[in-house]
Amino acid sequence: MNTEITNAVNAAGDKAQYDARVKRILAQKNILAHILVKTVDEFKGMKPEDVVTYIEGEPKVGIVPVEPGLSNIEKTDATGQRIVGLNTENAEINEGLVRFDIIFYVRMKNGLSQIIVNVEAQKDEPTEYKILNRAIFYVSRLVSSQKERDFVNTNYDDIKQVFSIWICMNMDYNSLSHIHLAKDEMLSPYDWKGNMDLLNIVLVGITNDIPEHDENYEMHRLIGALLSTELREQEKLDIIEHEYNIPISNELREDVRIMCNLSTGIEEKATEKTSEKFILNMYKKGYTLDQIADIAETSVAAVEAVIKKKEPAMA
């Protein structure tokens, strides 16, 4: 395998590991509680540490397929009793499928009803598709996948309220949008029976500049600090622990440490790749080695090394 392909494979591996750590960190119940307090009306005004107790079981991270027909698993127990639940098995068989980043159930304060919450992390707003369109698909799957799992036959009144929360980094400004169903009366108003609040999409835009610790931006500061490529490991942990009173477990500390290391490696590889491309483009356009070295702020020897390494491919 040539060096370029090897580097590409290594970079892809680092990126996959980084993404996995981001999901693991966001899936910490103490972090999810802060997100719920700012995005779900039921929990607004509550202390995040109190909301933690309403999160049921362990959030499923990157293991539940989005695709129709694959989100649920059905089996029977030893007594022949039918069991249904989120499909978290045979991940290797279904390799390559799109999966929810994080998905979990939350018990409401009445102790009876539940909601289903999905959290998706994006490094920025996608350009290959409109993010709202994808969010609509996800929130629709969160509803349709409940059939035969959370409700059976035509018991549509048993459908659980769903939230799909999308966190987009590297945005121009901090934002928070709630998108949900609305009813427009086109003739005489009529009170149609049903739950208008079943579908909820929340889009969270977060900038690279971490905001001050202000009530309106508490969630943005927490997530911004956690996922920042500028802050060092200990700076992140200090903000999490001292500003948000989140206990630092060994698992969380390790995830933050690995994520920071991976982030540094990815950034260095990206810088190196950009630098090589810049030098080669200058060389192809006829600039001298001295001119390239001066503009790229590097040595002539370094420029020569890049060109020699790529000369066979340029021939």
Rank of each mutant, 00 (worst) to 15 (best):
R232I: 13
S188D: 11
E276K: 14
V22C: 15
E148L: 06
Q161N: 08
S228F: 12
Y138A: 05
D158K: 15
L181F: 02
P312T: 06
V300L: 01
V256Y: 02
T264C: 10
V143A: 04
F104H: 10
T3A: 11
W192F: 10
T39M: 00
K60V: 06
I210S: 03
E185P: 06
V139M: 06
L222A: 01
I103S: 03
I292Y: 02
L32R: 01
K309H: 15
K75Q: 08
L227K: 09
Q81V: 08
V139C: 09
W166G: 01
T88P: 00
Y217L: 15
I295E: 04
Y173K: 15
V143R: 06
A11N: 13
E185K: 07
A301Q: 12
Y190R: 10
S145E: 08
I5G: 01
G111M: 02
S177C: 12
S145V: 01
I55N: 00
K277A: 13
L187E: 10
A315R: 14
A302E: 13
F278R: 05
P48K: 01
H180V: 04
K308F: 11
M219S: 05
T88Y: 01
Y138V: 08
K285W: 12
L26T: 15
N133G: 13
H220F: 09
S71G: 10
S71P: 08
K285R: 13
N87T: 03
A270F: 11
G13P: 02
I83N: 01
D158E: 14
I103H: 01
H34M: 04
R232E: 15
F163W: 00
Y283V: 05
S164F: 00
N153K: 10
D150A: 06
L97T: 13
I131Y: 15
E42R: 03
L231A: 09
K147R: 12
R99L: 14
T154N: 13
S299C: 01
D294R: 11
T79C: 05
P48T: 01
E56S: 07
L237P: 01
G224A: 04
V143I: 15
G111D: 05
A27S: 10
K147Y: 02
A301H: 11
P211W: 06
Y18D: 07
E304H: 07
I131N: 14
S263W: 02
Y217W: 13
L198A: 00
V306Q: 06
E148Y: 08
A293L: 07
G80A: 00
L26M: 10
L181I: 05
L199F: 15
I179Q: 06
P59C: 11
Q146R: 06
H180R: 14
N10R: 14
E95Y: 07
N133A: 12
P68L: 11
N94P: 10
D191K: 14
K160F: 04
Y156W: 13
K47V: 02
E251G: 05
E49T: 03
K130Q: 14
D214N: 13
Y138F: 11
A301I: 09
I165H: 02
A270K: 14
L86W: 10
A12M: 13
M196E: 09
N94E: 07
K285D: 12
K75G: 10
N200M: 03
T76C: 11
S249A: 06
P65G: 02
Q114E: 12
E56M: 03
Y138P: 02
K60H: 11
R253N: 11
A313Y: 14
I246A: 04
L142G: 07
Q114A: 02
E267K: 11
Q81L: 09
D101Q: 06
Q17D: 12
K277Q: 12
E42I: 09
R141S: 03
Q161T: 14
